[in-house]
């Protein structure tokens, strides 16, 4: 295991800094959220954005697609949305010579960046189709497996209110998301800046775009960031501690430990370091764990949220064994 040299990290960090700067310039007032989203992208994870309508979830995905020069598509989930509407389907086509055959029409999932808007409004069947695709990064129809483009990310959004007529994502399926990020309301200064500098709220064009090659190099560099044994041990103990925590019915899965490690690597790279520190884990622990903890009824009675429990676990588990 060799540590990345400063010369290897410097250009990647420069690209990532410029990406973040471009994102911050397009969407005002959320640098921390942008940093987490970019860390999720570098960790090759899917992100669940949770927030009220109009807070810029779709705008964030659109801006990211522009900056990263990725093929982005959007699916508005509705109760009558079918799996074939997502993954595609075979249709009977007539050729020029008059012969007919079943040909595959790929669905919107065949893209680099997919915005699954209001994912909790689709039926469980459709949700499962998407979530299966997210995990496998391929689509299998009529015995034929078709890989999705690389990279492939899903940024799903869901509205935490108006739950009437929705199908909340099962815990097993939310586990497929690397992060669950809450998009909060911007403060008054941000709102003032938005309305004073932008006509109709239109985002400016990004002054910088990250090429696919540069993004691939960033992926490669992130995977070479060293995870020290002490930090890995801490991650393992954090995940194990979620099963023993009060108010927790079911703790985090091993997938959570993998997600913690990968996203911490990405966070270290965003900071220009070749190794993961404890602070990197702390930075990503709550978004990684908050949707993976299944709480019991006492948590509702006591007003305890998954964020509170994750925060408590991080504070209580010592870094040194």
């Amino acid at each position: 295991m060799t540590l990345l040299s400063p010369d290897e990290i410097a250009p990647v960090k420069q690209d990532l800094d410029r990406t973040l700067a471009a994102l911050d310039s397009m969407l005002l007032g959320r640098p921390a959220l942008h940093r987490l989203v970019l860390a999720g992208i570098l960790a090759r994870g899917h992100i669940l954005l949770e927030g009220l309508p109009g807070l810029g979830k779709t705008a964030l995905v659109t801006a990211l697609a522009k900056i990263l020069e990725l093929d982005a598509k959007r699916i508005q989930f509705t109760p009558d949305l079918m799996p074939s509407d997502i993954v595609g389907s075979h249709i009977l086509e007539t050729r020029a010579d008059g012969s007919r055959e079943m040909s595959f029409r790929p669905g919107p999932v065949f893209c680099n960046l997919l915005l699954a808007d209001e994912i909790n409004r689709a039926s469980p069947k459709t949700q499962s189709a998407l979530l299966e695709t997210m995990q496998e990064r391929s689509v299998t129809l009529m015995g034929v497996t078709r890989p999705l483009p690389d990279p492939f990310f899903v940024l799903a959004s869901q509205n935490p209110i108006e739950l009437e007529g929705t199908y909340p994502l099962p815990e097993a399926q939310t586990d497929r998301f690397l992060f669950r990020l809450r998009v909060g309301s911007p403060d008054a200064a941000t709102l003032t800046a938005i309305i004073s500098s932008r006509s109709q709220g239109k985002m400016p064009d990004p002054g910088f775009t990250l090429s696919k090659d540069a993004l691939g190099r960033a992926f490669d560099t992130a995977s070479r960031v060293v995870l020290p044994e002490a930090v890995a041990s801490w991650i393992g103990r954090i995940v194990a501690a979620t099963h023993k925590a009060e108010h927790v019915k079911y703790g985090a899965s091993p997938r959570a430990a993998i997600a913690l490690a990968e996203s911490a690597r990405a966070f270290a790279l965003l900071d220009g370091r070749p190794s993961v520190g404890f602070d990197d884990v702390r930075a990503v622990a709550i978004p990684v764990l908050n949707h993976r903890l299944v709480l019991d009824y006492r948590a509702s009675l006591d007003g305890v949220t998954p964020d509170d429990i994750a925060r408590g676990i991080i504070e209580s588990v010592p870094v040194a064994e």
Partner: peptide, 24 residues
């Protein structure tokens, strides 16, 4: 190792104190 981890955490060294000895 625990001492190194505690020092690393206290100094916020970003894991650099934990990877001493690695090539590079």
């Amino acid at each position: 190792g625990a001492c190194a981890a505690l020092t690393e955490d206290a100094t916020h060294a970003g894991g650099l104190l934990l990877v001493e000895g690695l090539p590079g």
